[in-house]
Design a protein around this nucleic acid. Structure first.
Lengths: 124, 124
DNA sequence: TCAATATTGATAAGTCATTATCACTTTGTC
DNA sequence: GACAAAGTGATAATGACTTATCAATATTGA
């Protein structure tokens, strides 16, 4: 039976508080502020568990390790900062992309990633 | 000085003949038909060289190893078949996505990936 | 509180795509 | 054709990320 531990709660909180997809290392770093000494293995284990339970979803980006965000968000896309490497959630969507689908193919989903500089990196 | 070998020519030909981004393994398999016994190391070496020379570009897709396609193609996007795993080049682009860029951010490029079933997999 | 056991943390081990190594082969020049 | 050097192929090594192991610890129901 599943127990409620400080570590597990901390990881859930981190995902909930940060409003962008986090890599396991980013989750680990943030969780360390809540539970000093929390191990990276626990982070991987818990993230995997959250995904299996359907509470979190992996966000995969080109050439990058998977990030994680809470499940249940409305349709959105991502912005990848080329300076700091952080991934941000962005609103909006061009909508119907069926005009791009080759004849005979069937599209079921799409992913859009914007690349550039984030607010913080432009100011820095 | 760079020499012209059967292997190198075969790999260039494969990229040129197939009209979709190929993974190193796909390149290897196709090149084996042209040069029996060609090694995977040669494929990696040659692809890397082609990229450095600017003759090929890597195509990175979420959660996948890099694929390669010839350089110089016009702006396009990709379709990833969930059945066979092949990646196809697709024409068209929604165009201006600036409305999606968060305030203070600057977008420099974008990537769109459609997911679904390709022609061949639907028929199968 | 106590015992049973799920969970944790440190780290070893495993994965997997890519790269380095090195003896042998092929290419290009003389 | 002969030679020097780039190229090749088999495979070991690498590197980054993720998972397994296991003794120690924390949680939960009784």
């Amino acid at each position: 039976m599943e127990r409620s531990t400080r570590q597990r709660q901390a990881i859930r909180d981190v995902l909930s508080e940060m409003s962008r997809p986090l890599s396991p290392l980013e989750v680990h770093e943030a969780a360390l502020h809540k539970v000093p000494g929390i191990g990276i293995a626990t982070v991987y284990r818990t993230l995997k568990g959250l995904v299996e339970e359907g509470q979190a979803v992996p966000v995969e980006l080109p050439g990058e390790a998977a990030r994680y965000e809470l499940a249940g968000k409305k349709h959105h896309h991502h912005f990848h900062c080329r300076d700091c490497g952080k991934v941000f959630e962005i609103e909006g969507c061009p909508g119907d992309l069926s005009f791009m689908v080759p004849k005979g193919f069937r599209a079921e989903a799409h992913e859009i990633v914007l690349y550039g500089r984030c607010d913080a990196c432009i100011k820095a």
